[in-house]
Simulated assay, not measured.
Amino acid sequence: MIRKISNFIICFFIIFSIPIDSKASEDRDYKTEMKQDILILMLSYPQYIVDVEKKSDDEVYIIMESGKKIIYDDKKEKNHEVKLTNPDLQDMLEQDYPLEKNTEIMDKNFDPGRARHYELLSEVYGNSKGAIEKNLASLKYGYTNYQFNKQNNANASLEAALKELMPLAKSRSDIGSILYPASGTFNYRVISGTGRLSPHSYGIAIDLKSDKRDYWKWSSEKAGKERLSDYPKELVEAFEKNNFVWGGKWGHFDILHFEYRPEIILKARYFANWNNNDEWFKGVPLNEETNKYIEIINNKL
């Protein structure tokens, strides 16, 4: 009888200890990524995100300078299309952007940076056409003046990328033929076939010279791959260095498209090589500002 009871107790602990340990590990991984995501958001939008609030285990918010609260994870099950249409912050940062050069078209639903959180963008760059237009600055390159949003260093970042590329364009025809003339920057419109505002509406995207192989709706995957193979990596790297994502790294490829998205690039830059043995913030350059954000996140989460 004693042996049976002992066996029962052993089986009980074996059965019930496994899922408990697994869940703890799962929770820890989720919380770590949440902390990393929120730190990246604070670093990406330092003048706009001022605090973090935890209402319950399921409700964590970033607090904007305006007082607006934006939920990190709404906990809703979503397919890829819904994540594009109505992403929360976690959805927006879920896919890791690859900083290495690619010569193949990405998997169909791999689109890091293509999900945009419109409440966040509106808080930073303007919540109406008129408000956005007031935030535009003129930037001349080639023979044309282009309009780009000056908030959050977007215009300055585009200028820095172009400043690096212009000398190269003089000696590299493969770069010059793509850089000039650009197809456009600010254009208040929705994305074709959707009701969603284009990032061009916020003045945070630039389309370079167009080629018929550039866009997934115009081109076959084979032709898109050929275009990728010919695309100069120095051009892509100059934009990525200045916090622009490239549509050539999307499954729904948009090869002429570069979009100012510091949160996507900084997450790739700082946390791509992170592992579970590291401090959750390892990889981020530490300074007074970063330490302040880490302290806020540790205290609130």
Rank of each mutant, 00 (worst) to 15 (best):
K134R: 13
S22V: 09
S219P: 11
W216T: 03
W246D: 01
V124W: 02
N242C: 01
Y180S: 05
L179K: 06
R269A: 05
L89N: 01
S183A: 10
H80V: 11
V60C: 12
K35P: 04
E123N: 06
K170C: 03
L43Y: 02
W216L: 05
E26T: 03
H257L: 05
L235N: 05
E288C: 08
G176D: 10
I14C: 03
A223P: 08
S128N: 02
N275Q: 11
E65Q: 12
T85E: 15
C11G: 08
K150Y: 15
T185K: 06
K217E: 12
P46K: 07
N276R: 13
N291M: 13
S192E: 12
K101S: 07
I191Q: 02
L99P: 09
N291W: 11
K217P: 05
R196E: 05
F239C: 02
K83Q: 13
S229L: 14
A131W: 07
S44I: 00
H200E: 03
E119D: 09
K83R: 12
T103L: 14
N273I: 07
R172Y: 06
Y48K: 05
P98R: 13
N152Q: 04
L39H: 01
E164Q: 14
S219C: 10
R213D: 09
I294K: 13
R3P: 05
K292T: 13
I178F: 04
G193M: 15
I38H: 01
I132G: 03
V50N: 08
G142A: 11
N7M: 14
F110R: 09
F12W: 08
D37C: 00
L158Y: 12
T290H: 13
L162C: 08
V52F: 04
Y215K: 04
D214F: 12
D27W: 12
M42V: 03
A156V: 07
G224M: 06
A268Y: 00
A161S: 12
I297M: 13
S44H: 01
T194C: 09
S198G: 06
L39I: 03
K76L: 15
N145Q: 13
D96P: 08
V124T: 00
D91W: 01
T32M: 09
N298S: 11
F13N: 00
Y231D: 04
N152T: 04
I63S: 05
Y180D: 05
S157C: 04
D57N: 12
T194S: 10
N135F: 10
P19T: 07
Y30P: 02
V190E: 02
Y270W: 07
P262Q: 00
